[in-house]
Design a protein around this nucleic acid. Sequence first.
DNA 1: TTGGCTCCCACGTAATCCCATGTTAGCCCA
DNA 2: TGGGCTAACATGGGATTACGTGGGAGCCAA
Lengths: 167, 167
Amino acid sequence: MFVSTYESAIDAKGRVSVPAPFRSALGGGSRIFLWPALDGSQCLEGGGEELMAMYRQTISRLPPQSRQRKALTLAIMSRAADLKMDDPGRIKIPEELLASVGITDKMVFVGALESFQIWSPEAYATYEADMAAAVSDPDVISALAAPYDATIAAGGVPGLTLVPGDD
Amino acid sequence: MFVSTYESAIDAKGRVSVPAPFRSALGGGSRIFLWPALDGSQCLEGGGEELMAMYRQTISRLPPQSRQRKALTLAIMSRAADLKMDDPGRIKIPEELLASVGITDKMVFVGALESFQIWSPEAYATYEADMAAAVSDPDVISALAAPYDATIAAGGVPGLTLVPGDD
DNA sequence: TTGGCTCCCACGTAATCCCATGTTAGCCCA
DNA sequence: TGGGCTAACATGGGATTACGTGGGAGCCAA
């Protein structure tokens, strides 16, 4: 699980250190996939082999030759960079990917559950402000209610007391 | 798995370097099949022996002498070029295939999961813009939902926590 | 015999691998 | 609670390997 945010910078050879907590979230693998976010956000989405396997399986279930499948295949598989970390955990992000999200030297690694994102510090500041405003919207907070009930109905989370009287 | 895009050019002898990552995706084989894309896109579709075997098996399941079988057999098997890479990993693409997709010297190798495509840079730029527009269509993104659920229902992806509470 | 094709070898560039160092944060002990 | 120690992490640099590219020799066909 990718959690928290970390800032990193590109060195003279074009390498970037992947934050150590993200490396352990990759489960020991040294392969990283990166592609421009599907929703048009000014960020890169990334993950390890497991995440790519998930997308691969999901896309493979779409009808061959369908518009949806072709669009998603191109957006993810064709645009993705297949990168390998060196021993200390650095990657070299292709210039075109960096340019597509306006990164010159510094960047922010943002944990997003099963994947992570890479932003330019400026773009992330804007995005963070937008999302902070969204969370203050009552509709967003109340959206938690239904899936929370579903979690309880599914048996809750081991080790966590969700319903009074259960402990 | 064919991922990412690479540009290559034809040398004075009509040879083209197959990108190294694609060569390893071919699994060590030096045989490459190429044919014009079935959907009429201005590109060539290609892959190794495994991809051809998949098409062969699929077509073989169609009724013999059926119109569909004959059409697909012609579109793939008859039009395909059966090419062999030299030691450094180059192929010589027949002139008629190049002409059919408007390639003169430069071309783009585009990864598409189990196969790859070859485009002229200009045609690919147009296609990429089309697909980028398609991805911003809510229908395309929402098309991910059903196969995503199916992936989870099928047991998810080993090593990846898809359902909250699984880790 | 000649043209063209294929196979093979050689070179320069660029990426990757590996080692070394400074720094920071966590940990233990006083 | 404070100080010192240790280990992990981020960063820099050098050497090796792989890759892409060009050219030449041998072989087959015309």
